[in-house]
């Protein structure tokens, strides 16, 4: 079971309660909640906020691919996964991403949660523009996406 969404922060904030509602089930004995939040320092600069940009359709496609790959690579068939990523301007401490997973056992839940965030970092077209205390701002360098099709 997968819930995947890009949330425009102007419309609503990301909340753990929705994730909890989605993954909660007596089928599963282990749940992990991962959140990414905006921190106040990066590369020795004082960060005051981050603007997230997203290619929404490709983002959702990559979330589904990552979920399906977990079936093949990790052999975790029974699972519930909730992924939401914010787009727009976020202040310090606000949540940019929630990954909530529920599995039968804790080993699977830890592995799956880590797998999903690492794959998102590699495959999901989301960009960050940091805003600094000195009124400057900068798109972060990022990693090139690899060509997949001809």
């Amino acid at each position: 079971m997968l819930h995947a969404k890009v949330i425009d922060i102007k419309e609503k904030k990301l909340t753990l309660s929705e994730a909890e509602k989605f993954i909660s089930s007596s089928d599963f004995g282990a749940s992990i909640y991962f959140t990414g939040t905006v921190r106040n320092q990066n590369n020795n600069k004082n960060v005051i906020g981050i603007t997230y940009d997203s290619h929404d359709k490709l983002v959702l496609k990559s979330f589904k691919e990552i979920y399906n790959e977990a079936d093949e690579k990790l052999k975790i068939k029974d699972k519930s996964v909730f992924i939401e990523h914010a787009k727009g301007y976020l202040n310090l401490e606000e949540i940019s991403i929630i990954i909530a997973v529920a599995c039968k056992h804790r080993d699977q839940a830890y592995v799956l949660s880590r797998y999903i965030i690492e794959e998102i970092k590699k495959k999901t077209p989301i960009w960050k523009k940091e805003h600094y205390a000195d009124n400057q701002s900068e798109w972060l360098k990022g990693s090139p996406l690899v060509n997949e099709k001809i």
């Binding site: 990414g36 997230y52 997203s54 290619h55 490709l58 990523h85 940019s96 991403i97 965030i117 998102i120 970092k121 495959k123 999901t124 077209p125 989301i126 960009w127 960050k128 798109w139 972060l140 360098k141 990022g142 990693s143 090139p144 996406l145």
Partner: peptide, 9 residues
């Protein structure tokens, strides 16, 4: 769409 180097999360 142009997809520059990525880095979400």
């Amino acid at each position: 769409a142009i997809i520059p180097p990525i880095g979400g999360g």
